[in-house]
Design a protein around this nucleic acid. Structure first.
Lengths: 331, 331
DNA sequence: CTGTTAGCGCGTTCAA
DNA sequence: TTGAACGCGCTAACAG
């Protein structure tokens, strides 16, 4: 593989001139520029960016850590991140961490060892890093993180969902959560409780069923929560995938949706509006969060200012066909 | 940030000894090893892998180029790739190329400039690279590529689908393709034609409608193909997403599936078995292709042998509820 | 405008 | 077992 030396020899100039001709062509005479360009073309020279990065102590690479890339919501965010990062001159290293701390640490390590300039954390958990602070931005997470973050108000969003269900006349409102220790679950559950309280409805653990945001867990949680004496007439599901699972499981039992049970999801993934029935859900600004996270991270990396700025983006309740008025005489 | 020099000074040894203590601790006396380890801990030293990579001319990073990360099939493959790559000591650079050659070239460039050791191409198109050949493996693509590849027999898979529909008594079988110039479309269309011919059915452009593998395009293509005098009683869709769109669009028009029209998809993405109705489809071994692609690529990178090995993995027709016997008196 | 020199942090000689 | 010296490819400082 041709190196800068070969080009210099071929062009009959010094390596410094070649370097300049490539980086700042306007500071090189027309004649030598041509010689260099010819030599580059002739030798098929490609600058060794490994060397350049080493010299500049920069990798122009950012890590994005995600619990599960196959979750459509995350893949949407990641697409936006990749797009923006590319525009800003950065490549994206994919860290599918499967919610495992050990995997996260490996990627954090890449930043510590300079293989990446910074990191975007999509999992709503704080990253533990001993030693110097790293350029980290949290996206799609929760509010109470020490670093920069761009997220939504999960509590408020959940509250709006339950308010809406209450306005439809529902009084027995169930909740399908992610893992209970997940910050998203906790914040949204808080919103759920607040809304119940505001409506004068009692909170009961009977009406809360734990899943893990996946479709399969939505099926299981829905089945479990519905087999009791006075089952809910509405279910607030903390992800669209769980809502899909819930709908599927209930329909399989012959339950009419929304006539007998209303279902509301969260995320507004692309499939939500094509499901049968179409799913009422909370829309998160996925692209916007991805783009902003990149911009924040890049400004930290390039400015080296560790701000604590935290941006809360608005959500929107999208009403579709999976929710409706409470049944007159619930089972 | 502490460098190897700092550690050497702190431990009262040379940098070479520090380097050795870290890379090959058994070749260092117990006493100095301890001194070095203490110094490392004290200084919070992290080896600068940028420097190490530069020295070894390796980045331990592979690029995966994908047309669209939000396509669930691809995200499944990528998850497998990330997992395997991590095991093998490589990180994955995400290249969402949106089917644009210019974006592809940027990522190819990263390999040429050593920022990545190799590349996995998920788009079924050949990569043009002038200059020295690069470590490239094609996955989920087609058969006729010059490099290593791991893929399926698209023609055969499509043929099996149509054979199956014929066996159900369908004689007017439509086809919803991806972009016509897409190699997947071409190979699967060939299989479609072969099966028609084998069954003594005539091929007609009237029964072929172009989309781009997305759900929305499936809706449009389905609507278009169904509004003719003798519409198909079965549709072979070249992706599950198009099948979902087709089902959605036809149901919206009051068409019963599969009683009036049978629908078959391709890919067997996770949602296919939860759709309403559940979708008959061709299962591709997504994880297997991802894992194998990584293994092939790593062996090329580390062995530097550019084999032309090409592995064809089997597919499976999964019959579900979206397909059934041809109607007795089609509209 | 151009060439010479030096050094980024590391791994690898070669001697001691 | 250890240390001194070198060089990977590139860019920045300085001198010419």
């Amino acid at each position: 593989m041709a190196s800068i030396k070969d080009v210099a020899r071929l062009a009959g100039v010094s390596v410094a001139t070649v370097s300049r001709a490539i980086a700042i062509p306007e500071k090189v005479s027309e004649k030598t520029l041509k010689k260099v360009n010819d030599a580059v073309a002739l030798s098929g020279y490609r600058p060794n960016l490994l060397a350049r990065n080493f010299r500049s102590s920069r990798s122009f690479c950012i890590v994005v850590m995600v619990p599960d890339i196959t979750n459509p919501f995350f893949s949407q965010v990641i697409k936006a991140i990749e797009d923006r990062a590319q525009q800003r001159g950065y490549a994206v290293l994919l860290g599918d961490t499967r919610d495992q701390n050990s995997r996260e640490q490996e990627y954090v390590h890449r930043v510590e060892t300079r293989l990446a300039d910074g990191l975007i954390q999509l999992r709503p958990n704080e990253i533990h890093v001993d030693g110097d602070p790293l350029p980290i931005v949290y996206a799609c997470g929760c509010e109470n993180v020490p670093n920069c973050s761009v997220t939504i108000d999960n509590t408020l969003a959940a509250k709006k969902v339950v308010d809406y269900l209450v306005s439809l006349g529902h009084t027995r409102i169930g909740c399908l959560t992610g893992l209970r220790e997940n910050p998203h679950s906790m914040e949204r559950l808080a919103g759920y409780r607040q809304a119940l309280e505001a409506a004068g409805l009692e909170y009961s653990e009977q009406y809360v069923s734990e899943g893990d945001f996946t479709l399969g867990s939505g099926q299981d949680a829905a089945k479990k929560i519905m087999c009791q004496a006075k089952p809910p007439t509405a279910l607030f599901c903390m992800s669209d995938q769980m809502a899909m699972g819930a709908i599927q499981a209930l329909q399989a039992q012959g339950v009419q949706i929304p006539q007998q049970v209303s279902i509301v999801g969260f995320d507004n993934i692309a499939y939500a509006e094509f499901w049968h029935p179409t799913i009422t859900t909370v829309s998160q600004p996925a692209e916007e969060m991805g783009k902003r996270a990149v911009d924040m991270l890049v400004s930290i990396i390039e400015g080296k200012e560790f701000t604590h700025e935290s941006k809360i983006l608005p959500t929107q309740l999208i009403v579709r066909d999976s929710s409706g008025a409470a049944p007159k005489d619930p089972a």
